[in-house]
Design a protein around this nucleic acid. Structure first.
Lengths: 209, 209
DNA sequence: ACCGCAATGTTGACGGTGTTCACATTGAGT
DNA sequence: ACTCAATGTGAACACCGTCAACATTGCGGT
Protein backbone atom coordinates (compact mmCIF):
# COMPACT_ATOMS: atom_id res chain seq x y z
CA UNK A 1 0.00 0.00 0.00
CA UNK A 2 1.61 3.18 -1.16
CA UNK A 3 -0.38 5.99 0.43
CA UNK A 4 -0.32 5.81 4.19
CA UNK A 5 -1.88 9.19 5.01
CA UNK A 6 -5.13 9.11 6.91
CA UNK A 7 -6.68 12.51 7.30
CA UNK A 8 -10.00 11.36 8.70
CA UNK A 9 -10.63 9.42 11.87
CA UNK A 10 -8.21 6.89 13.11
CA UNK A 11 -9.17 3.42 11.85
CA UNK A 12 -10.24 1.21 14.70
CA UNK A 13 -7.73 -1.21 16.09
CA UNK A 14 -4.93 0.92 14.84
CA UNK A 15 -2.52 2.37 17.32
CA UNK A 16 -0.75 4.86 15.13
CA UNK A 17 -2.62 7.41 13.15
CA UNK A 18 -0.55 8.36 10.16
CA UNK A 19 -0.68 12.14 10.12
CA UNK A 20 -2.20 13.04 13.42
CA UNK A 21 -0.72 16.51 13.47
CA UNK A 22 -2.59 17.63 10.40
CA UNK A 23 -5.74 15.85 11.49
CA UNK A 24 -5.62 17.65 14.83
CA UNK A 25 -5.17 20.95 13.09
CA UNK A 26 -8.12 20.40 10.80
CA UNK A 27 -10.35 19.12 13.58
CA UNK A 28 -9.45 22.10 15.75
CA UNK A 29 -10.20 24.51 12.94
CA UNK A 30 -13.50 22.79 12.25
CA UNK A 31 -14.57 23.09 15.87
CA UNK A 32 -13.46 26.71 16.06
CA UNK A 33 -15.37 27.69 12.97
CA UNK A 34 -18.48 25.85 14.03
CA UNK A 35 -18.63 26.65 17.74
CA UNK A 36 -16.04 29.31 18.50
CA UNK A 37 -12.70 29.26 20.28
CA UNK A 38 -14.18 28.87 23.73
CA UNK A 39 -15.68 25.53 22.69
CA UNK A 40 -12.33 24.12 21.64
CA UNK A 41 -11.29 21.52 24.20
CA UNK A 42 -8.44 19.12 23.84
CA UNK A 43 -10.66 16.27 24.98
CA UNK A 44 -13.29 17.05 22.34
CA UNK A 45 -10.83 17.28 19.48
CA UNK A 46 -9.28 14.04 20.67
CA UNK A 47 -12.64 12.28 20.78
CA UNK A 48 -13.54 13.58 17.32
CA UNK A 49 -10.49 11.84 15.92
CA UNK A 50 -10.97 8.73 18.00
CA UNK A 51 -7.75 9.46 19.79
CA UNK A 52 -6.71 9.96 23.37
CA UNK A 53 -6.94 13.43 24.88
CA UNK A 54 -3.24 13.71 25.51
CA UNK A 55 -2.04 12.36 22.18
CA UNK A 56 -1.94 15.97 21.12
CA UNK A 57 1.11 16.62 23.26
CA UNK A 58 3.26 14.56 20.91
CA UNK A 59 2.66 17.13 18.19
CA UNK A 60 2.07 20.43 19.97
CA UNK A 61 3.68 21.85 23.08
CA UNK A 62 0.32 22.81 24.54
CA UNK A 63 -3.06 24.21 23.62
CA UNK A 64 -1.53 27.60 22.89
CA UNK A 65 0.75 26.05 20.32
CA UNK A 66 -2.21 24.36 18.64
CA UNK A 67 -4.04 27.67 18.40
CA UNK A 68 -0.91 29.35 17.10
CA UNK A 69 -0.72 26.75 14.35
CA UNK A 70 -4.38 27.35 13.49
CA UNK A 71 -3.64 31.07 13.33
CA UNK A 72 -0.66 30.49 11.09
CA UNK A 73 -2.81 28.47 8.72
CA UNK A 74 -5.28 31.36 8.67
CA UNK A 75 -2.63 33.85 7.62
CA UNK A 76 -1.59 31.51 4.85
CA UNK A 77 -4.99 31.35 3.23
CA UNK A 78 -5.61 35.05 3.88
CA UNK A 79 -2.43 35.93 2.03
CA UNK A 80 -3.42 33.71 -0.87
CA UNK A 81 -6.84 35.28 -1.10
CA UNK A 82 -5.39 38.78 -0.98
CA UNK A 83 -2.87 37.99 -3.68
CA UNK A 84 -5.51 36.40 -5.84
CA UNK A 85 -7.90 39.34 -5.43
CA UNK A 86 -5.13 41.76 -6.35
CA UNK A 87 -4.12 39.90 -9.47
CA UNK A 88 -7.56 38.83 -10.55
CA UNK A 89 -8.74 42.45 -10.50
CA UNK A 90 -5.87 43.44 -12.75
CA UNK A 91 -4.00 45.32 -10.01
CA UNK A 92 -4.30 49.09 -10.08
CA UNK A 93 -7.04 50.91 -8.30
CA UNK A 94 -9.52 48.06 -8.77
CA UNK A 95 -6.91 45.73 -7.34
CA UNK A 96 -6.60 47.67 -4.12
CA UNK A 97 -10.36 47.76 -3.76
CA UNK A 98 -10.53 44.04 -4.37
CA UNK A 99 -7.92 43.39 -1.71
CA UNK A 100 -9.74 45.43 0.88
CA UNK A 101 -12.99 43.75 0.03
CA UNK A 102 -11.41 40.30 0.14
CA UNK A 103 -9.87 41.04 3.53
CA UNK A 104 -13.12 42.01 5.20
CA UNK A 105 -14.95 39.21 3.43
CA UNK A 106 -12.47 36.67 4.77
CA UNK A 107 -12.91 37.87 8.33
CA UNK A 108 -16.68 37.91 8.15
CA UNK A 109 -16.88 34.51 6.52
CA UNK A 110 -14.84 32.87 9.29
CA UNK A 111 -15.06 35.16 12.29
CA UNK A 112 -13.80 32.71 14.88
CA UNK A 113 -10.81 31.75 12.83
CA UNK A 114 -9.99 35.38 12.20
CA UNK A 115 -10.24 36.13 15.90
CA UNK A 116 -7.80 33.35 16.69
CA UNK A 117 -5.35 34.91 14.27
CA UNK A 118 -5.20 38.04 16.37
CA UNK A 119 -4.07 37.18 19.82
CA UNK A 120 -7.33 36.18 21.41
CA UNK A 121 -6.70 32.84 23.01
CA UNK A 122 -3.01 32.26 23.07
CA UNK A 123 -0.13 34.16 24.53
CA UNK A 124 1.83 36.32 22.17
CA UNK A 125 5.03 34.93 23.63
CA UNK A 126 4.02 31.54 22.33
CA UNK A 127 3.87 33.04 18.87
CA UNK A 128 6.44 30.93 17.16
CA UNK A 129 8.60 32.41 14.49
CA UNK A 130 6.55 30.63 11.84
CA UNK A 131 3.39 32.43 12.86
CA UNK A 132 5.08 35.79 12.83
CA UNK A 133 6.60 35.09 9.44
CA UNK A 134 3.30 34.02 7.93
CA UNK A 135 1.62 37.16 9.26
CA UNK A 136 4.40 39.27 7.88
CA UNK A 137 4.05 37.68 4.47
CA UNK A 138 0.36 38.55 4.39
CA UNK A 139 1.24 42.11 5.32
CA UNK A 140 3.89 42.31 2.64
CA UNK A 141 1.34 41.30 0.03
CA UNK A 142 -0.47 44.55 0.75
CA UNK A 143 2.68 46.58 1.04
CA UNK A 144 4.07 45.35 -2.27
CA UNK A 145 0.83 46.20 -4.00
CA UNK A 146 1.10 49.71 -2.62
CA UNK A 147 4.65 50.02 -3.83
CA UNK A 148 3.57 49.02 -7.32
CA UNK A 149 0.88 51.67 -7.22
CA UNK A 150 3.38 54.25 -6.08
CA UNK A 151 5.62 53.37 -9.01
CA UNK A 152 2.67 53.86 -11.31
CA UNK A 153 2.19 57.30 -9.74
CA UNK A 154 -1.25 56.49 -8.42
CA UNK A 155 -0.44 56.55 -4.71
CA UNK A 156 1.39 59.21 -2.73
CA UNK A 157 5.11 58.50 -2.34
CA UNK A 158 4.94 58.17 1.43
CA UNK A 159 6.79 55.53 3.40
CA UNK A 160 5.13 52.39 2.04
CA UNK A 161 5.28 50.57 5.37
CA UNK A 162 3.45 53.35 7.13
CA UNK A 163 0.96 53.51 4.30
CA UNK A 164 0.40 49.77 4.55
CA UNK A 165 0.02 49.95 8.32
CA UNK A 166 -2.58 52.64 7.82
CA UNK A 167 -4.67 50.63 5.39
CA UNK A 168 -4.24 47.41 7.31
CA UNK A 169 -5.51 49.14 10.43
CA UNK A 170 -8.55 50.35 8.55
CA UNK A 171 -9.65 46.99 7.17
CA UNK A 172 -8.72 45.21 10.39
CA UNK A 173 -10.81 47.68 12.35
CA UNK A 174 -13.81 47.22 10.08
CA UNK A 175 -13.45 43.46 10.21
CA UNK A 176 -13.10 43.30 13.98
CA UNK A 177 -15.97 45.65 14.75
CA UNK A 178 -18.20 43.86 12.27
CA UNK A 179 -17.33 40.48 13.77
CA UNK A 180 -17.92 41.68 17.31
CA UNK A 181 -21.28 43.12 16.34
CA UNK A 182 -20.09 46.51 17.54
CA UNK A 183 -21.65 48.52 14.74
CA UNK A 184 -25.16 49.80 15.15
CA UNK A 185 -27.75 47.25 14.05
CA UNK A 186 -28.41 47.32 10.35
CA UNK A 187 -24.91 48.40 9.40
CA UNK A 188 -23.72 46.74 6.21
CA UNK A 189 -20.06 45.92 6.61
CA UNK A 190 -19.51 45.38 2.90
CA UNK A 191 -21.01 48.76 2.06
CA UNK A 192 -18.94 50.36 4.79
CA UNK A 193 -15.83 48.76 3.31
CA UNK A 194 -16.57 50.19 -0.11
CA UNK A 195 -17.25 53.60 1.38
CA UNK A 196 -14.07 53.45 3.43
CA UNK A 197 -11.92 52.49 0.48
CA UNK A 198 -13.34 55.36 -1.54
CA UNK A 199 -12.80 57.88 1.28
CA UNK A 200 -9.38 56.40 1.75
CA UNK A 201 -8.46 57.58 -1.71
CA UNK A 202 -9.81 61.09 -1.65
CA UNK A 203 -10.01 61.86 2.08
CA UNK A 204 -12.85 63.12 4.17
CA UNK A 205 -12.17 66.84 3.92
CA UNK A 206 -14.77 68.90 2.12
CA UNK A 207 -13.83 70.04 -1.34
CA UNK A 208 -11.57 73.06 -1.16
CA UNK A 209 -13.71 76.15 -1.28
CA UNK B 1 -21.93 57.36 61.61
CA UNK B 2 -23.30 58.72 58.39
CA UNK B 3 -21.22 57.22 55.62
CA UNK B 4 -21.51 53.48 55.46
CA UNK B 5 -19.71 52.79 52.17
CA UNK B 6 -16.67 50.61 52.35
CA UNK B 7 -14.77 50.46 49.12
CA UNK B 8 -11.68 48.73 50.45
CA UNK B 9 -11.44 45.28 52.00
CA UNK B 10 -14.22 43.92 54.09
CA UNK B 11 -13.60 44.74 57.76
CA UNK B 12 -12.95 41.58 59.74
CA UNK B 13 -15.82 40.09 61.68
CA UNK B 14 -18.29 41.76 59.42
CA UNK B 15 -20.64 39.61 57.46
CA UNK B 16 -21.98 42.17 55.05
CA UNK B 17 -19.71 44.26 52.99
CA UNK B 18 -21.45 47.49 52.23
CA UNK B 19 -20.87 47.95 48.53
CA UNK B 20 -19.48 44.65 47.39
CA UNK B 21 -20.58 45.10 43.83
CA UNK B 22 -18.42 48.16 43.29
CA UNK B 23 -15.55 46.63 45.22
CA UNK B 24 -15.69 43.54 43.02
CA UNK B 25 -15.68 45.67 39.92
CA UNK B 26 -12.66 47.67 41.02
CA UNK B 27 -10.76 44.61 42.15
CA UNK B 28 -11.48 42.87 38.86
CA UNK B 29 -10.33 45.88 36.88
CA UNK B 30 -7.17 46.13 38.97
CA UNK B 31 -6.30 42.51 38.33
CA UNK B 32 -7.05 42.80 34.63
CA UNK B 33 -4.87 45.86 34.19
CA UNK B 34 -2.01 44.39 36.17
CA UNK B 35 -2.00 40.79 34.96
CA UNK B 36 -4.36 40.51 32.00
CA UNK B 37 -7.79 38.98 31.54
CA UNK B 38 -6.55 35.41 31.65
CA UNK B 39 -5.33 35.98 35.21
CA UNK B 40 -8.75 37.06 36.42
CA UNK B 41 -10.18 34.30 38.58
CA UNK B 42 -13.26 34.56 40.74
CA UNK B 43 -11.41 32.99 43.64
CA UNK B 44 -8.59 35.50 43.45
CA UNK B 45 -10.87 38.52 43.35
CA UNK B 46 -12.81 37.08 46.25
CA UNK B 47 -9.68 36.52 48.29
CA UNK B 48 -8.42 40.01 47.54
CA UNK B 49 -11.56 41.41 49.12
CA UNK B 50 -11.57 38.95 51.98
CA UNK B 51 -14.81 37.51 50.74
CA UNK B 52 -16.03 34.08 49.73
CA UNK B 53 -15.50 33.07 46.13
CA UNK B 54 -19.17 32.64 45.44
CA UNK B 55 -20.31 35.89 47.02
CA UNK B 56 -19.91 37.36 43.57
CA UNK B 57 -22.99 35.55 42.35
CA UNK B 58 -25.23 37.80 44.47
CA UNK B 59 -24.16 40.76 42.30
CA UNK B 60 -23.34 39.30 38.91
CA UNK B 61 -24.99 36.51 36.97
CA UNK B 62 -21.62 34.94 36.17
CA UNK B 63 -18.06 35.77 35.21
CA UNK B 64 -19.21 37.01 31.81
CA UNK B 65 -21.46 39.55 33.46
CA UNK B 66 -18.61 40.79 35.61
CA UNK B 67 -16.45 41.28 32.53
CA UNK B 68 -19.30 43.01 30.76
CA UNK B 69 -19.58 45.44 33.67
CA UNK B 70 -15.85 46.09 33.50
CA UNK B 71 -16.20 46.73 29.78
CA UNK B 72 -19.07 49.11 30.39
CA UNK B 73 -16.97 51.07 32.85
CA UNK B 74 -14.26 51.25 30.20
CA UNK B 75 -16.60 52.79 27.63
CA UNK B 76 -17.66 55.36 30.20
CA UNK B 77 -14.17 56.66 30.81
CA UNK B 78 -13.28 56.39 27.13
CA UNK B 79 -16.23 58.57 26.22
CA UNK B 80 -15.24 61.13 28.83
CA UNK B 81 -11.68 61.26 27.55
CA UNK B 82 -12.83 61.65 23.96
CA UNK B 83 -15.22 64.44 24.86
CA UNK B 84 -12.56 66.18 26.90
CA UNK B 85 -9.98 65.92 24.11
CA UNK B 86 -12.46 67.30 21.61
CA UNK B 87 -13.39 70.29 23.73
CA UNK B 88 -9.97 70.96 25.17
CA UNK B 89 -8.50 71.21 21.69
CA UNK B 90 -11.12 73.77 20.73
CA UNK B 91 -13.00 71.40 18.43
CA UNK B 92 -12.39 71.87 14.71
CA UNK B 93 -9.63 70.07 12.90
CA UNK B 94 -7.39 70.04 15.96
CA UNK B 95 -10.28 68.59 17.92
CA UNK B 96 -10.65 65.60 15.61
CA UNK B 97 -6.93 64.97 15.76
CA UNK B 98 -7.02 65.17 19.53
CA UNK B 99 -9.86 62.67 19.68
CA UNK B 100 -8.06 60.19 17.50
CA UNK B 101 -4.92 60.58 19.51
CA UNK B 102 -6.79 60.21 22.79
CA UNK B 103 -8.49 57.06 21.55
CA UNK B 104 -5.30 55.26 20.64
CA UNK B 105 -3.59 56.57 23.76
CA UNK B 106 -6.37 55.17 25.94
CA UNK B 107 -6.08 51.73 24.37
CA UNK B 108 -2.30 51.62 24.65
CA UNK B 109 -2.29 52.87 28.23
CA UNK B 110 -4.64 50.10 29.38
CA UNK B 111 -4.43 47.35 26.79
CA UNK B 112 -6.07 44.61 28.83
CA UNK B 113 -9.00 46.78 29.78
CA UNK B 114 -9.45 47.85 26.19
CA UNK B 115 -9.37 44.25 25.03
CA UNK B 116 -12.11 43.35 27.49
CA UNK B 117 -14.23 46.11 26.03
CA UNK B 118 -14.23 44.39 22.68
CA UNK B 119 -15.63 40.94 23.01
CA UNK B 120 -12.57 39.01 24.05
CA UNK B 121 -13.58 37.06 27.11
CA UNK B 122 -17.32 37.28 27.38
CA UNK B 123 -20.10 36.27 25.09
CA UNK B 124 -21.73 39.00 23.10
CA UNK B 125 -25.11 37.63 24.05
CA UNK B 126 -24.32 38.47 27.65
CA UNK B 127 -23.84 42.06 26.59
CA UNK B 128 -26.50 43.68 28.68
CA UNK B 129 -28.35 46.67 27.35
CA UNK B 130 -26.29 48.94 29.58
CA UNK B 131 -23.05 47.89 27.94
CA UNK B 132 -24.45 48.44 24.48
CA UNK B 133 -25.79 51.83 25.46
CA UNK B 134 -22.50 52.95 26.97
CA UNK B 135 -20.66 51.86 23.85
CA UNK B 136 -23.14 53.68 21.69
CA UNK B 137 -22.70 56.87 23.69
CA UNK B 138 -18.95 56.75 23.14
CA UNK B 139 -19.58 56.28 19.44
CA UNK B 140 -22.01 59.18 19.35
CA UNK B 141 -19.36 61.45 20.84
CA UNK B 142 -17.35 60.95 17.68
CA UNK B 143 -20.34 61.14 15.39
CA UNK B 144 -21.58 64.39 16.89
CA UNK B 145 -18.16 65.94 16.48
CA UNK B 146 -18.23 64.97 12.83
CA UNK B 147 -21.66 66.50 12.39
CA UNK B 148 -20.41 69.75 13.87
CA UNK B 149 -17.53 69.73 11.44
CA UNK B 150 -19.87 69.08 8.56
CA UNK B 151 -21.97 72.05 9.59
CA UNK B 152 -18.82 74.16 9.59
CA UNK B 153 -18.18 72.94 6.06
CA UNK B 154 -14.92 71.27 6.95
CA UNK B 155 -15.99 67.68 6.42
CA UNK B 156 -17.70 66.13 3.42
CA UNK B 157 -21.49 65.97 3.80
CA UNK B 158 -21.63 62.19 3.70
CA UNK B 159 -23.82 60.10 5.96
CA UNK B 160 -22.35 60.96 9.36
CA UNK B 161 -22.88 57.49 10.76
CA UNK B 162 -20.95 55.88 7.95
CA UNK B 163 -18.27 58.51 8.30
CA UNK B 164 -18.06 57.82 12.02
CA UNK B 165 -17.93 54.07 11.44
CA UNK B 166 -15.09 54.66 9.03
CA UNK B 167 -13.00 56.70 11.46
CA UNK B 168 -13.82 54.48 14.39
CA UNK B 169 -12.65 51.46 12.42
CA UNK B 170 -9.40 53.21 11.67
CA UNK B 171 -8.48 54.12 15.23
CA UNK B 172 -9.77 50.81 16.56
CA UNK B 173 -7.63 48.96 14.06
CA UNK B 174 -4.52 50.92 14.98
CA UNK B 175 -5.21 50.42 18.67
CA UNK B 176 -5.84 46.68 18.37
CA UNK B 177 -2.86 45.95 16.17
CA UNK B 178 -0.60 48.03 18.38
CA UNK B 179 -1.84 46.25 21.50
CA UNK B 180 -1.42 42.83 19.96
CA UNK B 181 2.09 43.66 18.88
CA UNK B 182 1.09 42.92 15.30
CA UNK B 183 3.01 45.78 13.71
CA UNK B 184 6.58 45.21 12.66
CA UNK B 185 9.03 45.84 15.51
CA UNK B 186 9.97 49.46 15.87
CA UNK B 187 6.65 50.79 14.68
CA UNK B 188 5.56 53.87 16.60
CA UNK B 189 1.82 53.70 17.12
CA UNK B 190 1.51 57.37 18.01
CA UNK B 191 3.33 58.43 14.88
CA UNK B 192 1.21 56.07 12.84
CA UNK B 193 -1.89 57.63 14.36
CA UNK B 194 -0.79 61.12 13.38
CA UNK B 195 0.06 59.94 9.89
CA UNK B 196 -3.27 58.14 9.56
CA UNK B 197 -5.27 61.16 10.70
CA UNK B 198 -3.48 63.35 8.19
CA UNK B 199 -4.01 60.86 5.34
CA UNK B 200 -7.57 60.53 6.51
CA UNK B 201 -8.12 64.14 5.65
CA UNK B 202 -6.47 64.33 2.27
CA UNK B 203 -6.51 60.74 1.08
CA UNK B 204 -3.74 58.55 -0.19
CA UNK B 205 -4.11 59.25 -3.88
CA UNK B 206 -1.25 61.03 -5.54
CA UNK B 207 -1.84 64.69 -6.35
CA UNK B 208 -3.85 65.02 -9.53
CA UNK B 209 -1.48 65.33 -12.41
C1' DA C 1 15.03 -11.78 9.34
C1' DC C 2 15.71 -10.14 13.61
C1' DC C 3 16.10 -6.80 17.28
C1' DG C 4 16.38 -2.58 19.77
C1' DC C 5 14.96 1.96 20.12
C1' DA C 6 12.82 6.16 19.22
C1' DA C 7 8.38 7.76 18.08
C1' DT C 8 3.74 7.72 19.02
C1' DG C 9 -0.62 6.80 21.62
C1' DT C 10 -3.01 5.59 26.40
C1' DT C 11 -4.36 5.75 31.08
C1' DG C 12 -4.79 7.63 35.54
C1' DA C 13 -4.01 11.37 38.33
C1' DC C 14 -3.49 16.31 39.93
C1' DG C 15 -4.51 21.08 40.66
C1' DG C 16 -7.30 24.75 39.19
C1' DT C 17 -11.61 26.71 37.37
C1' DG C 18 -16.69 28.34 37.11
C1' DT C 19 -20.89 27.22 39.03
C1' DT C 20 -24.58 25.48 42.15
C1' DC C 21 -27.03 24.46 46.35
C1' DA C 22 -28.21 24.17 51.02
C1' DC C 23 -27.30 26.83 54.85
C1' DA C 24 -25.86 30.96 57.91
C1' DT C 25 -26.03 35.72 59.01
C1' DT C 26 -27.60 40.13 58.79
C1' DG C 27 -30.28 44.56 58.35
C1' DA C 28 -34.61 46.95 57.32
C1' DG C 29 -39.46 47.54 57.76
C1' DT C 30 -43.68 46.61 60.43
C1' DA D 1 -39.40 42.53 68.93
C1' DC D 2 -40.20 39.80 64.70
C1' DT D 3 -40.19 38.54 60.16
C1' DC D 4 -38.24 38.12 55.75
C1' DA D 5 -35.68 39.29 51.90
C1' DA D 6 -31.00 40.29 50.94
C1' DT D 7 -26.44 38.95 51.29
C1' DG D 8 -22.37 35.96 52.41
C1' DT D 9 -20.45 30.92 53.28
C1' DG D 10 -18.78 26.17 52.53
C1' DA D 11 -18.86 21.94 50.39
C1' DA D 12 -19.46 19.73 46.32
C1' DC D 13 -19.60 18.91 41.13
C1' DA D 14 -18.15 18.67 36.44
C1' DC D 15 -14.84 20.12 33.42
C1' DC D 16 -10.43 21.56 31.87
C1' DG D 17 -5.19 21.55 30.69
C1' DT D 18 -1.26 19.13 31.83
C1' DC D 19 1.92 15.56 33.24
C1' DA D 20 4.17 11.11 34.26
C1' DA D 21 4.34 6.26 33.85
C1' DC D 22 3.19 2.83 30.75
C1' DA D 23 1.81 0.38 26.17
C1' DT D 24 2.32 -0.22 21.35
C1' DT D 25 4.26 0.36 17.10
C1' DG D 26 7.23 1.09 12.96
C1' DC D 27 11.93 1.65 11.28
C1' DG D 28 16.99 1.28 10.68
C1' DG D 29 21.13 -1.39 11.48
C1' DT D 30 23.11 -5.81 11.63
Amino acid sequence: MANARRLARKPVNQYHHGDLRRALLEAALRTIQKQGVHALTLRAVGDELGVSRSALYRHFADKSALLAAVAREGFRTLRRELQQAWEHAGKGRAGLDAMGDAYVRFAIAQPSHYRVMFGSGFEREAADAELIEEGTRAFLTLMNALIEEQQQGRVRPDDPEQLANFIWSLVHGIAMLAIDGAFRPGTDAQALTRFALERLRTGIAAALA
